[in-house]
Design a binder for these strands. Structure first.
Lengths: 347, 347
DNA sequence: CTGAAAGCGCTTACAG
DNA sequence: CTGAAAGCGCTTACAG
């Protein structure tokens, strides 16, 4: 009514907390002179009321600035309008990109998103799942800690819709969404072979959260029927891990002319180490990364990489979760998302 | 009791949603043979019960796997155990770093964090605030859309604890946490002058979400009593904006030998543009960025930058919010966080 | 040390 | 087209 005052204390007593006493369904009903049930019908678009009544209720809602209390509603409907996103590693740019996109996808579904990270700690993940359950989330998206299948299935059994990102061992009966890393690996190897590389090293980490990691099983297939020499080393999934990995490769294969890294940070480290050893990239050694993090486009040389599209993942994950919510208990096939080779300067 | 079955369908009917029928306070009470009130006391550590009773209740809780329904509790206490983090731009690495750290800080407070982005759209921000309010969050952290003070103060007046990141115009009576960008600017200018630069350009954007932006008021002071020539240009806060900014600077000042960029992406763009014009960095032109994003350390040359510590911000913001929750209505001074100059190769 | 009653703000059957 | 009653799962006074 009156113009907005800019004094945040307003007319209310200080120190009184949420003193505004938000309007309730009953306040609206009383003002209009109908039963709360009728207001509830209008709020939820249930139909079964006269247009006149609807309009008067809507006006009262506007005037009282009524908003339904989602806690009260959720207590009855067991739908809180919230979902949880549980990730494993906040230093991973793809995880952050997923969080960003997932938030968008869920907003379109009218849901608010809880966000939490287990930091790859199983106990912490357990506490997070517990907390989300206590908040009665409608579902969860989880990039799980390794070997935490039993933790998850516990909630699945209680009826919580859960979508797992990646290829969690043992989780064949939990809905999964993952990238086609094998396919990306084949693309990358094909590109290296096509551009004449014949001594190719793979720097793999223990596992990828997004699918089966290049450098594990399947490595042989990509090279099948080629005349390339190959070598696999393991490394931490970091820049320094990548540097260490490259030096290891060079010792094993002095003629190394191509490298596949299991993620872009590893690739960046490998490039730096190669240059430090006097090898030019890509002239002497081609390096291909994976994930397509932002940095990859701005480093020199810019990184050729297997692009994992975070918004594609976010969309797929949101759709899968909605499916589980709509039809609980239906068994879902894993969703495998396509990847793309982005050719830039490094290989 | 029995070993965990790996069939997620368990023994329950499929398609029955959250059919597990989670145990309630009453279930625990009935099992132990006490009143619900007594169980509530134990759950909330209120004291006023015998050790024997406590132990029996704890055992029953364990056995029934009882967890309090936070929706029901929140309905009464008006403390939902949740907070909202509302950001403005998910492409900003510092925003993501803040989200990551804030999540941690709130977990330590025993709160779960909602995460949402307005994408710099005022209507969207309004919808998010609305939704968080409906979920009865205990408080909100907001990196606000520009000029959205009135939206925020509306909730402040309703008693919602809100902490604003940055120097929102008009928000002098809302609790704010920001970085000392002016101080960082002085550090950077001092470094440029100390290393002999005498024709210094500033690439500023319209505003920074984290404080007053370098390139705005205060620019004069940093150069006061120096014999340097200075030039200010505006640019989009992106890599290409930085490139455009540098070319503009070179036209205005062909003798340019130092550049201050309002963020690291702008700085990276400026470096690339300088190199494209045949200028060496840092020999011919020194470039200093701001924010210290991860990429800054891996580009060539690595970026000298003003570091804004996301976890410092997250901690300060969480503490400020807790303060508001504990003592609602108390007027708070803005918190100004120190920054640091990280000298690397670019300047 | 323990409990019976009322109620947070909403929705779900059910009855007119 | 509309409403009175019961209850979601918990806590808050209050009484013993």
């Amino acid at each position: 009514m009156a113009d907005v005052e800019l004094d945040p204390a307003g007319g209310m007593a200080a120190g009184s907390g949420r003193s505004g006493k938000a309007a309730t369904l009953h306040d609206v009903a009383r003002k209009v002179g109908v039963a709360p049930r009728t207001v509830s019908r209008v709020v939820n678009d249930e139909g079964g009321y006269s247009e006149t009544t609807r309009q008067r209720i809507l006006d009262a809602i506007e005037e009282l600035r009524y908003r339904p209390n989602l806690l009260a509603r959720g207590l009855i409907t067991r739908r809180s309008g919230t979902v949880g996103l549980v990730v494993n590693d906040l230093t991973d740019p793809l995880v952050l990109a997923l969080a960003a996109s997932a938030q968008d996808s869920f907003r379109e579904q009218g849901r608010s998103m809880f966000f939490a990270s287990s930091d790859d700690d199983a106990d912490r993940q357990g506490a997070i799942l517990q907390s989300l359950w206590s908040h009665a989330v409608d579902g969860m998206i989880v990039i799980p800690v390794r070997d935490s299948y039993r933790q998850l299935v516990d909630y699945v059994r209680r009826g919580v819709p859960i979508v797992v990102v990646g290829d969690l061992v043992g989780a064949q009966n939990v809905t999964r969404v993952m990238f086609d890393l094998d396919g990306g690996f084949r693309l990358a190897v094909g590109h290296l072979l096509d551009t004449g590389r014949r001594s190719i090293g793979v720097i793999g980490s223990a596992a990828s959260p997004y699918g089966r990691c290049p450098g594990q099983e399947g490595i042989g297939n990509a090279f099948f029927a080629s005349d390339a020499r190959t070598q696999l080393v393991r490394a931490e999934p970091t820049v320094s891990g990548g540097a260490a990995g490259l030096e290891q490769l060079l010792e094993l294969r002095p003629d190394l002319d191509g490298v596949l890294a299991c993620n872009d940070m590893v690739a960046i480290g490998a490039v730096a180490a190669a240059q430090a050893r006097g090898r030019r990239v890509p002239e002497d050694i081609a390096v291909i990364g994976c994930n397509d993090i932002d940095s990859g486009a701005v480093v020199t040389p810019s990184l050729t990489t297997i692009r994992l599209d975070a918004s594609l993942l976010a969309g797929a994950v949101a759709v899968a979760l909605q499916g589980l919510i709509d039809e609980p208990g239906v068994q879902r096939d894993p969703v495998v998302l396509p990847v793309e080779l982005v050719v830039r300067d490094s290989g």
